[in-house]
Write a protein that binds this DNA or RNA. Structure first.
Lengths: 185, 185
DNA sequence: ATTAAACAACCAACCAGTTAGTTAGGCCCA
DNA sequence: TGGGCCTAACTAACTGGTTGGTTGTTTAAT
């Protein structure tokens, strides 16, 4: 095992950054802590990612890429898509937190191109589905996408005061799928 | 106009705190900035609210109280309830941000009693509605509440990369109401 | 095959500016 | 005149970011 390897170090920094940013957000994250978890010196973060914000962007982009890759999209079977979104965030709740923090803390001058492109391709696919009459035309494509996203992640947007009342993952998943089916009918 | 008035000062601190915390979260908020906006000395915040977290809790509680008061709840007409939720957060987007930050940043040892109480009363009301067959029994009460909440605030949970595609408030409101009706049918 | 130069990866220590929180005392009204 | 309201000034600790130098790795001429 080599002692010096830029790619390996970058990857470890990114992983540590995702963890720290997901837990505490941009303002709450501590660069020193990320460096420590990554097992390297703080100066490396600055060498590779410029500054704290640059590191967040890199970490979030990496996280999103993974997500898009794993979840995919399918206008022909939107309930299944919603199920995959639900499953992904059930398995990786930190990724949802990360994206929430992105919404809250990033001043959105230039949107991430990767996301813009994916958004557009999904809208297109939905609209094709509508023309082919396999997708309801009662909502606009954006509305539909937004509703499905919100439903699939509905549990994580609840206030935490429900606590004990919160049903288990299986029940919640069923509710999500049923809700999406009803929206589409 | 009197120059000294504890209640008035407290209220101005609270208002300034809501603004600052909504914009930047707990970690990102600056106590000095809150004091400046409130037009008083920083020491007053500490005299009245103990510390930064205490101030956040007070600000958030005040915000929630206002919200619960204004929006209310009605198990007999859930689409209308969803509409009111939508309208409230359309008019006060900062309140939604505040509650998101509460979810993300607050270590939930003791939940806010006010919220617990309201949650419970809503669940009870929903269950009564189910027994009276005016509310669908296809979902559990918690699931239903969670879904409606998510749908009513769905637009604010979207990633910001949609930008230009985002429809206007009227269209979005219609989508929310229709979605809730479909869920309930 | 050696070796020396060139380069890339890495780090300990430091810095200037910022932050939450405190203190000691002044001011105002009853 | 006394107690609650208010402030300027302060501090100890922390934070993002930098610097100057060290060490491992590759390259290429000998």
């Amino acid at each position: 095992m080599q002692q010096r390897n830029a790619d390996r170090t970058k990857a470890r920094i990114l992983a540590a950054a995702i963890e720290e940013f997901a837990a505490r957000g941009i303002a709450g994250a501590r660069v020193d802590r990320i460096a420590e978890v990554a097992g390297c010196n703080k100066a490396m973060l600055y060498a590779y990612f410029g500054n704290k914000d640059g590191l967040f962007d890199a970490a979030f982009s990496a996280s999103v890429e993974q997500y898009l890759d794993e979840v995919g999209f399918d206008a022909d079977d939107l309930p299944a898509y919603a199920g995959r979104v639900f499953d992904y965030f059930e398995a990786h709740p930190d990724r949802l937190r990360l994206s929430t923090w992105y919404r809250l803390e990033r001043p959105h001058g230039q949107p991430l191109e990767a996301i813009v492109a994916v958004n557009q391709s999904r809208l297109d696919e939905l609209q094709r589905g509508m023309r082919r009459r396999v997708v309801t035309r009662q909502f606009s494509a954006v509305s539909l996408l937004s509703l499905i996203q919100a439903i699939a992640t509905s549990w994580s947007s609840m206030n935490p005061e429900y606590g004990a009342d919160e049903p288990n993952a299986t029940v919640r998943r069923r509710a999500v799928l049923m809700a999406v089916q009803k929206i589409l009918s």
